[in-house]
Structures are given as C-alpha cells and as structure tokens.
Computed example of a mutant assay.
Amino acid sequence: MEYIVLDLEWNQSNTGKEDAVEKLPFEIIEIGAIKLNKERVMVSEFNELIKPQVYHEMHKITSKLIHIQMQELERGRPFPEVGGDFVRWCGQEEQLFCTWGTLDLTELQRNMAYYEMPLLAPGPLPYLDVQKLFAIAYEERKIRRNLEYAIDFLHIEKDIPFHRAFSDAYYTAKILIRILEEHPEVVVNLSYDTFCPPKDRRDEVKAQFDTYVKYISREFKDKTEAFADKEVVSSKCYLCHRNLRKKIKWFSANGRHYYCVAYCEKHGYLKGKIRVRKAYDGGVYIVKTTKLIPKEEAEAIAARRDHAREVRKRHKHSKAGNAGE
C-alpha cells in the first residue's frame, strides 16, 4: 500500500459569482504531492504550477495567502497536461490518497471533469483526511486544527514555508507518518470523496466506524425522489441492526440538513443526520450519518424541531397576511 499525500492551490473569479464558471468555480493552479511507501518512507515528489485557462486574474485572497503571481503561472503548463502527468506519477500500485481536509480530491476531480479527463474513480473514493485523523488521535474529535498548529503540536521541524501546495503536502505527510507510528488504529476512519456518487443501489456506501455509521446513496433526480426511498429515511441501530421507530421524524431548519431521533430499547437514542448534496450533473445524493447520543441531546433536537416549526408557522402566516392586503 502506497500513500499519495496531496495538496492543491486554486484560484477563482476575482469579481464575484456572476463571472464564475458554473462547472469550474475553483481552477487549480498548483499540485504538490508526496508518495510514501508501505514502510512510511517518502520515496517520490510531485510539484508543478499550472497555467490558467479560465481565470486570468488572481483572486486577492489567493494572491495574499500563497504569494503566487499570475506572471509566474503563465510559465506553467495547462491542467490537462499537468493532471495527466500527476495521475501517471501516482502509478499503478495499490494506493490511498491522503489530504489535509475534505476539499482537494473533489476539486481535483471537478477540474478533471471540466477538461473531460478520466476521473480518479467511478464512484466514492476512500481516502485519509489527515486533519480528521489528527483530531481523533490527539484531541477532541470535533476540533479541526490548521496545518501549522498540528506541526507545532507534534514538534515537527518547520524547514520550508507554509501555504504552497508542495510544502503543505510535505507537512501533511510528516503528520501522517507520526499518526501511523503512534496511533495506527485511527487509520480505519476512512473518509469518502463523493464527487462521483454511487452508480446504483449495489454500489451505495455503508461504512461503520467506532462511534457512528455513514451511508452514501446513489444519485436521485431531486430531493423529493430521494426522500421517497426507504433506505434513505430508515433508522437502524448500528449495534444490534434493528429497524427502529422514530421518536422525532425527519425535519430541517434550512432545507439542506435534516435530523431525526430514534430509540433502541437496548442501546438508547440515535441521531440521524442527512445532508443533501448536489451531483456534478445536476441530480442529488444523500449522505446520512447515524450515531448514539445521550437523552439530553435528543431533547435539544426536539427543541430545535419545535423552533423550526414555529418559524415556518410565522412565515406562513406572514405570507398569508401579505397576500390579503
């Protein structure tokens, strides 16, 4: 097993969403990567700038953060050439991508799709989110630290500057090596890049971890079709695998995140959370997580549901009043 530790830098429209390209809101301008072998030794590097084809003015925040000038990028090669070389550099060995955070593989595949290149995988792509693994291994699970904090926490030497693709891949690789040495048990906590949702029901992801389970659905035409699917809205205890009756039915306060609470006689309250994600081609898919929670959290969710109901009721009455004027 080889580890491909990846980091990207990207640019975007400098004048706002109205000038952004819908299928490419973020254009990759630099790819940096480190390859670790199964002995956790750095054996190869990839580092290359990319000549912009879509956004020819550097976004002010991007320029300030990574200190790349457009003139420097103009000396690079177009993404299809660099991206193709990167895929060939990754090689044919069994490998696992590793990133700091959750965005890089999605944006890499979005750029590949824009140029009609073969994607990294036909469906959800398992990878290691080293930022998440650091939180599990060394701190409270929900705390997401920045890369430099983790380097300082682990007393790793800072021998090259931060905020460029190669340097951030290099430091992420250093952190991953420490995690593999000191807390190898946390590596079972895979993440999934879902730029390509499952093709059909047989390919849907059902992954169980130590404190929760994750379900990634196939693509649906729209949200209504998704919520008509029994698997999407079901509640099961992931410890005893029993179908459960909901104490709090699915509700949402924002139309994107949905919550429910079910109760298992043996294991207690379980919270379900659904996130509705848009697919690249315009459909939607569902990412659902289920985890055990204490009674107090179940009561807090009930209060959130009641508040959402009250807000909707006031909004409905307000619209009715305005229509009658």
Rank of each mutant, 00 (worst) to 15 (best):
Q69T: 09
Y115L: 00
A135V: 06
N254V: 08
Y170C: 07
Y285H: 15
K313Y: 11
E310W: 04
N11F: 13
N111C: 08
Y55Q: 00
K23W: 08
T99I: 04
R275G: 14
S234P: 05
A298P: 09
A279D: 11
R314D: 02
F251Y: 13
P161G: 02
A113P: 02
D168G: 06
V82H: 01
A173Y: 05
I34G: 02
Y115F: 09
K266A: 11
E27V: 03
Q109V: 03
K38S: 15
K64H: 12
V82D: 01
L105C: 11
E299R: 10
E204T: 11
P25D: 05
R77P: 07
N11P: 15
S252F: 05
K38A: 14
T211S: 13
F220R: 00
G32N: 08
R245V: 13
E140F: 14
D159F: 09
L36E: 03
G76P: 03
D281A: 12
K206M: 14
K64F: 12
Y269H: 14
L73Y: 05
N243L: 14
A135K: 02
V82G: 05
L176T: 03
V232H: 03
L180T: 06
M70G: 03
D193H: 04
E310T: 08
V41W: 02
G324S: 13
E299S: 10
T211E: 12
E45S: 10
L120Y: 01
K132D: 08
I151C: 07
Y280L: 05
E116H: 13
I31G: 09
E94P: 13
L49P: 00
C260H: 08
C90K: 03
G101Q: 06
I29D: 05
E39N: 15
K278W: 11
C196T: 15
R275N: 14
A300W: 10
E30Y: 08
F227C: 03
I136F: 12
E39V: 10
I28A: 04
A253H: 11
G268Q: 08
R145Q: 11
P294T: 01
L176M: 02
R304N: 12
E219I: 11
S63A: 15
K247Y: 08
L128P: 02
D104Q: 04
N322I: 13
F195M: 00
A228F: 04
E27R: 08
I136M: 11
F166Y: 14
T194E: 09
I66W: 05
R144H: 13
I151W: 00
F134Y: 10
V213P: 07
S252Q: 03
K319T: 12
